[in-house]
Computed example of a mutant assay.
Amino acid sequence: MNRAELADFLRRGRARLEPSDVGLAPGARRRTPGLRREEVAALAGMSVDYYTRLEQSRGPRPSRQMLTALARALRLTEDERDHLFHLVGEEPPRRDAASAHVRPGLLLVLDRLYDSPAQVVTDLGAVLAQNALAKALVGDVLTRPPRERNLTRRFFLDPAARALFPPEDYPAHARDHVANLRAVAAARPDDPEPAALVAELRAESEEFARLWEEHEVSLRRPGTKRFLHPVVGLLELDCEVLLSHHSRHHLIIHTARPGTESHERLELLRVVGTQDMTPTEAVG
């Protein structure tokens, strides 16, 4: 591990970013350019002390999960992310369509959608990134262990994950999850990840196993979703699904039609934010 080079790389990466680049308010005039250490630490989900020690060449060896979080927080390109891993003596993640690395441009779009809940999700349903309003609506998924960030797995295996949907909408959500997973699994016959998820859900969920046998196929499509937020109440939101440069990363955006009660409630959620109303469960 090259601590000096790592510290310099982190400092330079932090200095080149403005708050608006990562979805933060500019705030008061800054003495030096770039983000503050505490802002990078918050974006990466680590303590300020831990990040400060990394920049001072005295921190412990970061885990692969921590390196991935730092790459996302600093909006690194794939080349820069690989360099970060090399500085720590780690092999970079695979460069393919299944990569969990979200391109900086897509993260910038995500951050600019301040008035609409939005998140980046893989074709298998793994949440890779969320903006602030998405966290306020459905919870901060990225605080969970990687295995628990998959929306399809949680919908069928964690009863609490359905708490933000009206019960009468459960059957439609279940069918959508199963139909999407079947389409993805068929498109990636040599990839063990979809097959493993299917096998797990067929073994653990009778509902999933029954729906799987019906052989319905449908990829994620735009539509309307209803959310039961514990504070602002019922929201009926239009769901748009946009593809990134490869079809395995989806940008999912929820919007409310102006003039509706849902629009007023979504605006209330945006104003209040996550101060005291973050749901304990995260769904999508």
Rank of each mutant, 00 (worst) to 15 (best):
P26K: 09
H250G: 00
S47P: 04
V231F: 10
D190N: 06
A134Y: 00
R12Q: 15
L211W: 05
G273P: 12
N180Y: 04
H250N: 06
L219R: 13
V141T: 06
D82S: 09
L211P: 01
A100D: 11
V231W: 13
S262W: 08
G27N: 13
E55H: 11
V102D: 07
A186W: 06
D49C: 04
L197V: 14
G273L: 10
D123R: 05
R220C: 04
F165Q: 00
V109E: 08
R30D: 15
S218T: 14
P145Y: 03
F156E: 00
L124N: 00
G45M: 06
R248C: 00
L164T: 02
R153A: 06
G45H: 05
M66A: 14
S63M: 08
V178H: 01
P33N: 15
L133F: 00
G139M: 05
L237W: 05
L128N: 00
P189M: 05
T255H: 09
G125Y: 00
L87N: 08
H86F: 11
P26H: 09
R103S: 08
L124F: 01
G34N: 09
D96P: 06
A282T: 15
L67N: 11
V121A: 02
G233V: 04
L142M: 02
T274R: 14
S247Q: 01
R12D: 15
N180V: 04
A126Q: 04
Q56L: 11
T122F: 02
E236D: 05
L113Y: 13
V109I: 10
R14F: 09
P146D: 08
L228I: 06
R95T: 15
L107R: 11
R3E: 12
L84T: 15
D111G: 13
L251C: 09
N2L: 12
P192V: 04
R182A: 02
A73S: 07
G105F: 14
E206C: 03
A132Q: 06
E200I: 04
D169E: 10
V217W: 14
R64V: 10
L269N: 12
H246I: 01
S116P: 00
P189A: 03
R36M: 11
G139Y: 09
A97R: 09
V283T: 15
T255M: 11
P279R: 13
L24P: 12
T260W: 05
E281V: 15
L242K: 02
R81K: 05
V231L: 12
F208V: 03
R16D: 14
H250S: 03
R182P: 02
E213D: 10
A4H: 10
A174T: 08
L142I: 01
E240R: 10
G27C: 13
V120Y: 04
Y50H: 11
D276E: 12
L76M: 11
R175I: 08
R149H: 03
G59E: 10
A199E: 14
D140W: 02
T32K: 10
P159I: 03
P230T: 15
D8S: 15
R112T: 12
E214C: 02
R265K: 15
H177A: 14
P93G: 10
C239A: 05
R147T: 08
E80P: 12
G223T: 02
